[in-house]
């Protein structure tokens, strides 16, 4: 153990008082049973709400975790998740189109913190939509929710969320991923800013979750093609006067060491960002790639969830 900063002034800045010892309590309301199927040849149809029962304490935010299927194993897939509250048959969506990528071969759970407050006794519902890059059969996923008790939580919580940048295209062809397409056309040259979504947040947002992933169908590369490098930026402001709030974000896509074409797909990142944005603020993304000869792999889609 290294205890750095002991006795120095800045140690005080990071001291946290959680109060009395509290036994942490986690609830996996969605048990790990397969219950979600997706359409794997086109952008899927949203499935019915899956009732996860009522919360037994106030949730000061929750972790949303996606986990792979049991066997058989399937190839790369993209998925999105909606969360709702309310009685069965009158669900009210509180989080929409929260997207994940699931690259093939080896990937554990992916998780994101959702800073939404949910009162005790609230019935929770989950529904999924997904597509895969193959035409193989349906598969199952396990969205799991873990509510955080106030006495365990350091987070601010919010009461609204809005997802912008989501594509509504019907099938997973180029540019029809789950987000807004940013496509470099000149090697190692930053694209112009692309607005994420046509609409801006309609209320003040305090916390963002920035997702970016590879797009559409078949972003495979072969042994002779990679690695591909990517830099991306996120900006805010009006057209022509954008200010970057994330610079030099980095992704890399590599080939298969087996020497064959492979589903070597980049992971959708879910980058948390505590950042205040007044209602109406436009959000933008731009990126550059070290290759422009493989359109499906060189481009990315972006989507952003704001909480306020």
């Amino acid at each position: 153990m290294i205890e750095y900063g002991k006795g120095r002034h800045w140690d005080q800045a990071s001291s946290i008082d959680l109060g009395v010892s509290v036994s942490p309590e986690y609830r996996a309301l969605s048990t790990p049973t397969s219950h979600v199927n997706g359409n794997n040849t086109a952008r899927g149809t949203k499935l019915a709400w899956y009732d996860n029962g009522a919360t037994t304490y106030d949730w000061h935010g929750f972790t949303l975790m996606f986990q792979n299927s049991w066997e058989p194993f399937f190839e790369d897939r993209k998925m999105s998740c909606d969360i709702a509250i309310g009685a069965v048959g009158s669900e009210q969506q509180i989080l929409g189109e929260f997207c994940f990528d699931q690259p093939s071969h080896s990937r554990g759970s992916q998780e994101a913190f959702i800073p939404l407050f949910i009162p005790k006794g609230t019935t929770l519902h989950v529904r999924m939509m997904m597509y895969s890059n193959t035409t193989s059969g349906a598969f199952s996923m396990r969205p799991t929710l873990f509510g955080w008790r106030q006495d365990m939580c350091h987070h601010k919580v919010y009461f609204r969320s809005e997802t912008i940048g989501i594509s509504t295209q019907a099938s997973p062809v180029l540019g029809n991923g789950y987000g807004t397409l940013v496509q470099p056309t000149i090697v190692d040259t930053m694209t112009p800013w692309v607005q994420i979504g046509e609409n801006t947040f309609d209320y003040h947002t305090w916390y963002l979750n920035i997702g970016q992933g590879f797009i559409g169908i078949d972003p495979r590369i072969t042994a002779s093609a990679g690695p591909y490098n990517f830099l991306y930026e996120i900006g805010v402001g009006e057209s022509g006067s954008q200010v970057a709030i994330i610079e030099d974000g980095y992704l890399n896509l590599q080939d298969s060491a087996t020497g064959t074409s492979d589903w070597n797909v980049g992971t959708q990142q879910m980058q948390p960002l505590q950042h205040y944005l007044p209602a109406g603020t436009k959000i933008w993304a731009r990126m550059q790639s070290s290759v422009i000869s493989h359109v499906a792999a060189q481009s990315k889609d972006f989507r952003i969830v704001g909480f306020g």
Partner: peptide, 26 residues
Amino acid sequence: PLMHHQIFLSSSWTGEYVSSHPGQPC
């Protein structure tokens, strides 16, 4: 939470695997 990791088996690949890093207040 019960954290999950899935590995992929094929005839040509072997390996070790590490889970992702699901940080959490605790």
